[in-house]
Design a binder for these strands. Structure first.
Length: 1065
RNA sequence: GGGAUGUUGGUCUAGCUCGGUGAAUGACAUUGCUCUUAUAUGGCGAAGAUCGGCGGUUCGAUUCCGCCACGUCCCA
């Protein structure tokens, strides 16, 4: 029969439990057990298999597991297929790094795209294995063997299927997108790449005036650090709220933002100028100007749209530098692009991806844009439009591979999923979702959804789901292919070893149905969020057999971190609304991130990432899980903090220790739990038994209320508080007295039954949070002391509320007890009266009738508990009885009048009846006889202070005022002394390793005779308590025969010195 | 740069949805006292926060609004 180790070591426990689960196939058994239960379907948000699992991932996964285990124990047949997101840019970047690939163009020549893709597969497989291992170590019970992988052909096929459907619904289309582009690598860069490459760059900084149309001699003054973009200028943006002024600069009028007038005038070397007119920006909307390169660039001559070559408004305008009028070229900047879209100005982007002007700009055709800056300035100067020219050095994005300055460039070949006509449906679908917390969904996500733009899904990449669009070389007609089968049918030639990845898919050429020409694939892959977004359908292989999908959809529950709002939550809803007309999930819990100890972001570059594996292998999964789950609400950020984990781990220590305590005595008494017996005898049970069971049921109730709302942190906190506060600190000390009774004693059996019942219930409730320790305690404790339990706690049912055990009146009564304990300790503490010294009386002046009734009902228990001879609960504050009025002379008033009589007067004042004196003074004059003289006192001569009489100590509490009468009598002192002595003898018995029933002989040598006398009053009691056959009490004037005693020890009890001799007999 | 979200004793946190009681909750750490034959515990005290800063709404704001600083997330 195995025994629990003395100390809780999570690592040892968890290793053992993992082994047990593995050997006994416990997970499979839970599936089988619940297979006929009601369905509850969880959709796993697939982690990206690049990099390892860190503690932030692990927190989210702990939440998933807790919910899953909870539902399983509630009897549900839980769908929980795992999933992995395996494609995308980060994988490529790591492979490029590993392979030393600098330029993407090199892939074909040096490595070969097929080899590259192979490397990507190997990399994600490597990470996949670690993710699975770490997840299992964390205790996350998912279906791993059947887990979906976004890189599989079957999965990608669903993405194609979706895109074809989207296209048929008119939602797929081409559009412009402004990308940071490296002209040397001839590729667009992702935001992530851009942020890696900021560096200082020296650029021209020019101030240019644009001649206005219909406003004679007036000019708009703009500023730019990229002169070449002026070629493609279409608008000038002003801020709608800023004030702009028209300046007379000697024959010409210039428009500049008011805040920057002086700066601009100084740069332009205009010494005298005057303000002619002031306007807010929005009034300038629509003002036309003549493009500075109107004559040179044919494109500009054709312009006649309303806002072309006109002033528009935008909030991106600042007054930090420049002129407050921002030159806007929609093809060359994200802000510019947005403005262009808003004012319906078409994009002009006469520059190739390699950064060279096209034939649309005849004067610069074939020239690299940066190289034209000087020329642009020169031309402007010639035209007399250059106001000022200088250079600035600023932070500018560079290519992280080759350090070439990037160009923001509009690219019209990108593919989009449109929002047109869909927005309302998405918002409505989202409103049907139950979000936790509510504001994250309807507010944060809902607002964002209502304003979401078209979704750019094309990526100029390799390792991803290929965009299934083929375009005819000749007639340019397009076809979106929806499946592998369809592709094969339309292919001119279909390779044997086909795979739905680049480069294989690129090699498939289709025949154009219109012109019989050749069709080639658009060389994009799709955004990997589209992959994971299809999980609702693709994860269950809908295309092969939709029956499983039909059973599961919509899923009951998903949970991911906030960064998924724009990611997974969005892509799920978008694709599902398009395909199935509704959101694919019913409940969604939003999580926040885990930060480092100082609240900083965890990142590889900072080196502050805590990997899940390390955390799990050093602190253990259970302490980690309970920390992550209870420390803060799922939607609040949290800091990873070792100190805090240690604190919460202590609570698991407490659980372990209370079980250990129970086990020790239950083992001794050969106890077997019998629920019927417990219920039968419960009416006669001790107060604390009924109380504990009622508390337990309150916990069960609250726990389920929280769990039903996915408030794991609340549910967990309720549990931890119960075990540490109620069970360990309150109940066990009360029960301890009973474990020494005979093993057959019904009081003791009841204590065991209650302990067992409470622990069994508790451990099951806790199991979803800390499955390892709970499994261990189930196996090695619960199973041993009851019949008919299954081998694993995961095969048991979640305890539900047992109404008949709930007794709120009992709990309220017990609260009174706790309050009285606290208050009495406080009052004792004030007077320095230790608990083991009995006091004469404790009085409660209760707040209300119920409290006093409850307190009275506890009287017997209280006498023992508070160690008092008497207890009374009364309702009214009988002030006179408990307070004492004392007189304080006012020396400043009395001194000058009574001078040398002061000493006697003061002495007399202490003796006088203070209440009477106060009453007299209130009426008028009081007289006092001192040394035969009658002295007169008036108000102000003395102050009165209310104080407690010496023998009383007072403490306030939530339930009323508590007075403790600490009057010392001989008997009370004797009792206290005997308790002191008894305790020390018991300590010595333990140190001698005596059996409980072993008799002894004792001598007590006191340092004063008074103590001898006191001890004699309780001689028999002392003998009984310590199982002494002989007891010799000796004072300071005699030295006992020490030789007789085998164990001698000296003690100090306050001032008393005590030497104890002891021998077994 | 835009949007979102947060900032409470030395540390970590509760409360803030729907502003109002008197001491803003609890834990750790500090400190005084104390209990205990389950516990690397526990109990009673002391001390410690003008609830990030500044403004506004209001009779009244930690709680609502705005701006600023700092952190974080998403987008650019």
């Amino acid at each position: 029969m195995s025994q629990l180790p003395k100390r809780y070591d999570p690592l040892v426990v968890e290793e053992e439990v993992l082994d047990f689960w593995n050997k006994e196939k416990v997970y499979d058994k839970t599936l089988k057990l619940r297979s006929s239960g009601p369905k509850w379907n969880f959709l796993e948000g697939p982690p990206t298999t690049n990099g390892f699992m860190h503690v932030g991932h692990a927190r989210g996964r702990a939440m998933k597991d807790t919910q899953i285990r909870y539902m399983t124990m509630r009897g549900y047949d839980v769908w929980r297929r795992g999933g992995w997101d395996m494609q995308g840019l980060p994988v490529e970047l790591e492979v490029e790094k590993n392979e030393g690939i600098v330029e993407k163009g090199l892939i074909d020549s040096n490595v070969g795209m097929d080899v590259f893709v192979q490397k990507c597969k190997e990399l994600v497989d490597f990470y996949l294995e670690r993710w699975v291992n770490d997840s299992i170590r964390l205790g996350l019970w998912l279906d791993y063997p059947e887990a979906y992988q976004t890189r599989k052909d079957d999965y990608i096929e669903h993405v194609w299927y979706f895109l074809k459907m989207a296209n048929e619904k008119g939602l797929l289309g081409r559009g412009y997108r402004v990308n940071p582009t490296c002209p040397r690598c001839v590729t667009a860069l992702s935001g992530h790449e851009v942020s890696q490459g900021y560096a200082t760059k020296v650029d021209p900084s020019i101030y240019v005036k644009f001649e206005m149309v219909d406003r004679e001699n007036e000019y708009l003054v703009i500023w730019t650090t990229t002169p070449f973009t002026l070629i493609s200028n279409e608008m000038v943006s002003v801020h709608p709220k800023y004030k702009y002024v028209k300046l007379d600069v000697g024959g010409e009028f210039w428009w500049v933002v008011e805040d920057l007038v002086e700066v601009v005038m100084e740069k332009a070397k205009v010494e005298s100028y005057s303000k002619v007119e002031t306007l807010t920006g929005k009034k300038m909307l629509g003002w036309k100007y003549r493009h500075p390169f109107h004559d040179e660039v044919p494109f500009h001559q054709e312009h006649d749209e309303k806002y072309m070559h006109a002033v528009v408004t935008g909030k991106h305008v600042t007054v930090e530098d420049g002129t407050g009028l921002v030159h806007t070229a929609p093809g060359f900047g994200p802000d510019d692009f947005e403005v262009g879209k808003e004012f319906k100005v078409p994009v002009l982007a006469p520059v190739t991806t390699s950064g060279k002007f096209t034939d649309e700009v005849p004067m610069f055709e074939g020239k690299l844009v940066f190289d034209t800056n000087v020329e642009v300035s020169r031309l402007l100067k010639e035209k007399g439009l250059l106001v000022h020219e200088e250079t600035v050095s600023h932070e500018y994005p560079h290519c992280w591979r080759c350090d070439t300055p990037l160009i923001y460039l509009a690219d019209k070949t990108q593919w989009f999923l449109k929002m047109t006509g869909l927005r309302d449906k998405l918002v409505k679908a989202n409103n049907d979702v139950e979000w936790t917390p509510k504001w994250a969904g309807t507010g944060r996500f809902g607002d964002w959804l209502a304003n979401a733009d078209d979704w750019c899904i094309s990526r100029s990449r390799i390792w991803g789901s290929p965009l299934p669009v083929w375009v005819c070389d000749d007639c340019k007609s397009e076809v979106v292919v929806g499946s592998r089968k369809e592709l094969k049918e339309r292919a001119i030639e279909f390779p044997e070893d086909f795979e739905m990845h680049r480069p294989w898919v690129d090699e498939v050429v289709l025949k154009c149905e219109k012109c019989k020409g050749e069709m080639h694939r658009e060389q994009f892959v799709t955004d990997c969020w589209l992959d994971s977004g299809m999980a609702h359908t693709a994860s269950v292989d809908y295309l092969k057999d939709p029956s499983l999908f039909n059973r599961l959809f919509p899923y009951d529950f998903i949970t991911e971190a906030v960064d998924q709002s724009r990611g997974w939550f969005y892509s799920l809803i978008y694709t599902s609304v398009v395909m199935h007309g509704s959101a694919p999930f019913k409940d969604c819990v939003s999580q926040e991130h885990v930060l480092d100890e100082d609240g900083g972001k965890m990142s590889k570059s900072r080196g502050n990432v805590v990997w899940a594996k390390d955390a799990l292998e050093t602190i253990g999964a259970d302490p980690f899980r309970i920390f992550m789950l209870t420390r803060s609400a799922s939607w609040s950020r949290m800091n990873h903090n070792q100190k805090e984990i240690d604190l919460i781990r202590k609570k698991l220590d407490v659980l372990w220790n209370v079980v250990l305590f129970s086990e020790t005595y239950m083992e001794l008494d050969k106890f077997k739990f019998d629920e019927k017996r417990m219920m039968k005898f419960l009416p006669e049970a001790n107060l604390e038994d009924k109380w504990l069971l009622s508390r337990l049921e309150s916990v069960v109730k609250e726990y389920h209320e929280h769990m039903d709302k996915y408030l794991w942190h609340q549910a967990g906190r309720v549990l931890l508080e119960f075990i540490t506060e109620d069970f360990s600190r309150v109940f066990l000390p009360l029960v301890k007295k009973r474990v020494w009774l005979d093993s057959e004693n019904p009081k003791k059996v009841m204590a065991y039954d209650v302990m067992y019942y409470a622990l069994q219930t508790f451990i099951r409730l806790l199991n979803p949070f800390t499955p390892f320790i709970c499994e261990k305690l189930h196996k090695d404790f619960l199973v041993r002391f009851a019949d008919g339990l299954p081998e694993s706690i995961n095969l048991t049912d979640m305890p539900m509320l047992v109404d008949k055990l709930l007794d709120t009146e009992m709990e309220a009564t017990f609260d009174v007890l706790q309050e009285l304990r606290t208050a009495s300790s406080h009052a004792r503490n004030k007077k320095g009266v230790k608990l083991r010294h009995p006091v004469a009386k404790v009085t409660l002046i209760a707040e209300d009738k119920e409290t006093s009734k409850r307190a009275e009902s506890l009287k017997e228990l209280l006498l023992d508990d508070l160690n008092t001879r008497d207890f009374e609960a009364v309702l009214t504050d009988i002030l006179a009885e408990f307070t004492q009025l004392s007189v304080k002379p006012n020396y400043k008033a009395l001194g000058p009048r009574y001078k040398d009589m002061m000493k006697q007067l003061v002495a007399q004042l202490q003796k006088v009846d203070a209440v009477k004196l106060r009453d007299d003074l209130e009426k008028g004059i009081a007289t006092l006889e001192v040394k035969g003289k009658k002295l007169e006192l008036v108000q102000g001569d003395v102050d009165f202070e209310e104080s407690l009489p010496e023998h009383l100590s007072y403490a306030d509490s939530k339930i009323g005022k508590v007075y403790v009468d600490v009057t010392r009598t001989k008997e009370l002192e004797a009792e206290g002394l005997v308790r002191d002595v008894t305790r020390r003898i018991q300590v010595m018995r333990k140190e001698m390793d005596l059996k409980v029933e072993q008799s002894i002989e004792i001598v007590l040598h006191f340092s004063d005779n008074e103590s001898v006398e006191l001890a004699k009053m309780f001689e028999d009691h002392l003998k009984n308590e310590t199982r002494a056959v002989t007891l010799d009490l000796v004072g300071p004037d005699r030295e006992p025969g020490w030789k007789k005693y085998s164990y001698i020890k000296e003690w100090e009890i306050d001032d008393l010195k005590l030497k104890v001799g002891m021998a077994a007999r």
